[in-house]
Design a protein around this nucleic acid. Structure first.
Lengths: 213, 213, 213, 213
DNA sequence: GATGAATGAGTTTTCATTCAT
DNA sequence: GATGAATGAAAACTCATTCAT
């Protein structure tokens, strides 16, 4: 009996716990859509509570203040974002396939989750970058971890002589990540730009083929 | 003699005008350093006035409100930034030299004007991107104009068969601009990263040489 | 039993609602006494809140801004004022009784509600007359409606040949209303003036008897 | 010599003095039109200076502060207003002619000098009535003096048995002044009201003839 | 003597957060 | 445990007034 209970309380969340988690998600979703649309400072806690259909007091039961809510949101979304992309890389064995799938999945996520993406970059480059130091440190760490995974792909490709050693693997990881982000962002902001590459391979080609005659 | 004087009095602003311009610059500099450090919403007009050593009322004599001050700041700095980089490209004739100089000057500006850079990207990706619509449109236009100049370099390089046609010139402009920004930003934020390329040529190599064996 | 309860719950406001209404009244009373004493522009929202013993934020929960509070105050008081006077007229059947009671009640209200009266005329003739256009229009309408009622008394008195037709009924309404207001105001402002008529009948006599020998 | 000088300085103002007086008038006229249109609190000293085409500092050379300017304006206009009306009364000998001319001239002034009238009543009933105590006292005194003149007309009319003694002369003065003001104001604010008496005699008739059959 | 740039006290309003019910 | 009324600190902005040139 007690085992059962313990087990339940540890692994299978109780109905109450599941309910709580659901409410928390509702709040975070409301906050996400509002923050993404109007920016952190232009969203009030009342708006979030009201959009999530909770009382303001209830919102404060879940998050001790606005910053806390924002941090939780950013961190959870960032984690999911990085996890999905890291997974995409590990799905294949061949290095080129790994890069291709990374670009493909990253592109899909960008298109499907614009609000999260907006918020993520708004946090990374926006006005909060200097304040909320811990948050930035945590995001930075996750980003570095991801870059290591991506660098690993280049490294193993080089070891197998599939890639030329035009730059350190880590540098190439930064470069590919940067290029792809820039292209994806551009598609968001300049949907009319017809010269942008259609598919991930085209992006990859820029890195792979080299420009020099 | 009189001609000289008249000429001077027409072109060179009067003492009063010069004084005004100086004050305006002081205010913008104070605002720049504060906005760059703490972000638009975390800076008060009193702080700016006090940092610039003016009374609050004087600040409002120069800028009709906070947004107006911010827009003036962003626009003037953005213009100077783009102008300096465009000029760097046009300084040379050879396409490779042009790209190299672009990267060199951009890097210098990044290192010498960190606050402006912070502010620029904070505006481009931060929470203001959706509000202050006109401002964003104006920045976008300047950016597009600059991209055209950069694309022109790739295009002429291709015409002369100095560059391979691995992608449309405009796409390459986006790519090179993106990669270089990413590297420069990374130097700001991860000064300890030893693997980052030291010089512009290394960045260029990534694009030029191609990764594929 | 249940019917009774339901009925009560529908018609009689809940405790919360009554509490709200009470607070609102407290705020309006505080505002009335301050506006009446010092005028709209010389009263701050903080003063009102503090006199009503609420926090400034609470005041703004009830009235969306200072103008809104002022309008609500003027309109509600004006309505009560006009309603009380109109009622006084309709209390009697005889035309002379109606006029007498109108003057009597108007006088009582003037003496008992000096602040409202001050505010009412301050609004009607003071500096707000040109700004706050809707408010003035609404007050004007209520005044016109009241004048029609008063004119009706003169008209019916003329039909019954109780009054001579020395002027159109509406003109007489304006005249009587004007004279009585002037006298009442004078009692407020020149309490020492011994020649002013003591009772309503004396005022009425001026209109009724005629000056010409 | 000295006599001459004294005489000149007292009676014939020097060119400088005349110039000064002219400037002062320009400032007061600018202030009048602005105050009358927007009310005391909604007009800035800069507006007045700029409308009068003077520097703000010059305005302050003539009036030590905003209140001072306002008081001077009100007082000078009030004096002129009362003087003109008092003069109108004294122009005739016959009591009825005196009243008729009073009403005629008062009406002309109302129509020709709407801004002054607005300002006068805005001061008398508006929000300033309680503050600016001296100003109100001075206006009150002038008004009382005028009422005495008007009361004198009724008194002499009664002595000659031309008027019935339906009320003390002073009371009748208040009444006639009140009625006429009310009618004139109504013409300003309700220009469409067709029932209002066209000429002074009609107004007078209301007082003279009596309503009682 | 005229000017108008500079000043800063004072006002309205918002919104994160608390806590009694 | 949820609620939402109440709080008040803090921010943008205005404008009467001064005084150096």
């Amino acid at each position: 009996m007690q085992n059962e209970y313990l087990a339940r309380s540890r692994k299978q969340p109780s109905r109450r716990e599941r309910e709580k988690a659901r409410q928390r998600q509702d709040m975070l979703e409301a906050a996400l859509s509002l923050f993404s649309e109007k920016g952190y400072h232009n969203v009030t806690m009342h708006e979030i509570a009201s959009k999530a259909e909770f009382a303001i007091g209830t919102l404060y039961k879940f998050f001790k203040n606005k910053e806390d809510l924002y941090k939780a949101l950013i961190l959870e979304k960032t984690d999911a974002f990085h996890a999905a992309i890291a997974e995409a890389i590990e799905e294949y064995d061949d290095e080129l396939d790994r890069l291709r799938n990374y670009l493909k999945v990253k592109g899909e996520i960008f298109r499907a989750h614009v609000p999260v993406i907006r918020l993520y970059f708004s946090e990374k480059y926006g006005e909060g970058f200097n304040l909320m130091a811990e948050l930035n440190e945590q995001i930075r760490q996750r980003h570095e971890e991801f870059l290591k995974i991506l660098a690993g792909v280049f490294e193993s490709g080089m070891r197998k002589n599939r890639f030329r050693k035009i730059a350190p693997p880590h540098t190439l990881a930064v470069a590919l990540n940067g290029i792809s982000t820039v292209f994806l962002f551009r598609r968001l902001e300049e949907p009319g730009d017809q010269t942008l590459p259609e598919d991930p391979d085209a992006i990859l080609d820029i890195l792979l083929k080299g420009l020099a005659e």
